[in-house]
Design a protein around this nucleic acid. Structure first.
Length: 363
DNA sequence: AACTCGATCAACCGCAATTAA
DNA sequence: CTTAATTGCGGTTGATCGAGT
């Protein structure tokens, strides 16, 4: 009974992903689409468990992910949503389609908690809730009153209704189009916010991590990889140790070979692992800053136009698969309006009122 | 220069829900 | 219906970095 095991745990690799692995995974998903993670390790030859592959994809490689600094809007939104939903990061992330739940969770834990705590202590001078973090909203650290739950539920329902109407409306483009293409510049894939393309050695607080990206980004990464791969890696492990993070003080060379990742003809076996003189992060930094809303545009636009076909082709794929069935994609439209459309504050009165109501409880 | 410490974030772990046989 | 695999999620960990001393 049941299903066959997804992957044997013997020989499963752990730890940071190497660029080679990323390439393999990305190219595989380009061909087959995300999902069916069980088959990914076996089909790609990756020594990773399906879970790890999925995680890597959703948190890092998936197109449309925005990395780097959170905007004020995003921050505000997270705070409100956290107050509203508690530590349901996946739910919160569904309202911020460019952010992963992991990212939001990290940001909450590292920034917002502190920020709010400061705010709170600034306001009343002491913690009067004694919750473990003082700000994890009301869903975890303190029992939520029935009334609060009901209101929360009502808000959710209301939002879902409205969003459903919007989604069904023929006048408006599908929301996923909005995610990937029509987002306003202020939030649209603002890599390299620091205006320092290709310098990923900035301190973390400023780092506009640019590794994960949209379809074009990945496509271009692959292309760039092929172009700029005269040298080999000292070793994947070495790279693993130094460059798997977003900071890349050292440049590891990768053993090149002559695969055509850009054409997606890369073998799906591990031998298809490709190489470059730069890490993916760097490649993304240099290549994808064109998405930035800042002055990097011209510089990075020149990088690569050969990918047009590839990009166009694959972007369709990714467009569809990018966060397919985003859990909260539908309600997102409301919040997007709220955040992105300065002239539409009323659409979210419920949410705002609710959020403020809840957050006010905290203070 | 060397060390310590706090901050950051990618990745792992474990659990629960879902799904397929 | 039962069982077991798969998927998704939230909490946590550990490696790495920069700042401070």
């Amino acid at each position: 009974m049941g299903r066959p095991p997804c992957c044997d745990k013997v020989g499963v690799k752990k730890g940071p992903w190497t660029p080679e692995e990323d390439i393999i995974l990305v190219s595989y998903i380009q061909e087959h689409g995300p999902g069916n993670w069980r088959s990914v390790p076996t089909n790609t030859g990756l020594l990773r468990c399906s879970k790890s592959c999925r995680l890597r994809w959703t948190n890092y490689l998936r197109p449309g992910i925005k990395r780097g600094n959170f905007t004020d809007h995003e921050e505000k939104m997270i705070i409100h949503l956290q107050a509203l939903l508690g530590n349901r990061w996946a739910a919160i992330a569904s309202y911020l389609p460019q952010r992963t739940d992991n990212d939001i969770k990290n940001y909450w834990n590292t920034h917002l908690k502190k920020k709010l705590r400061k705010l709170q202590t600034g306001l009343d001078g002491h913690d009067h809730h004694n919750s473990q973090d003082g700000f994890s909203g009301n869903s975890h650290d303190q029992p939520i009153s029935k009334g609060q739950w009901e209101r929360r539920l009502q808000t959710d329902i209301h939002m879902a209704k409205q969003a459903l109407c919007e989604a069904l409306s023929l006048d408006k483009p599908p929301t996923h189009d909005l995610h990937l293409q029509d987002l306003k510049p202020s939030i649209n894939l603002g890599y390299n916010n620091n205006d320092q393309p290709n310098t990923n050695t900035c301190s973390r607080p400023h780092q506009a991590s640019t590794y994960a990206s949209n379809t074009e980004n990945i496509a271009k990464l692959l292309e760039s990889w092929m172009k700029n791969s005269p040298k080999g890696p000292s070793s994947a492990q070495n790279h693993n140790q130094t460059n798997s993070k977003t900071n890349l003080p050292q440049i590891n060379s990768f053993k090149n070979n002559n695969n055509t990742a850009a054409g997606c003809s890369m073998s799906t076996s591990s031998e298809g692992a490709q190489s470059a003189t730069t890490t993916p992060e760097q490649a993304f930094d240099s290549l994808f800053s064109f998405n930035s809303s800042t002055s990097d545009v011209s510089q990075s636009m020149s990088v690569d136009e050969n990918n047009a076909n590839f990009t166009a082709e694959t972007s369709c794929l990714f467009q569809d698969e990018s966060k397919p069935n985003l859990e909260g994609e539908v309600p997102l439209t409301l919040l997007e309006k709220w955040l992105f459309d300065d002239a539409a504050p009323h659409a979210h009165e419920d949410l705002i009122n609710m959020s403020l109501e809840n957050t006010s409880v905290m203070f």
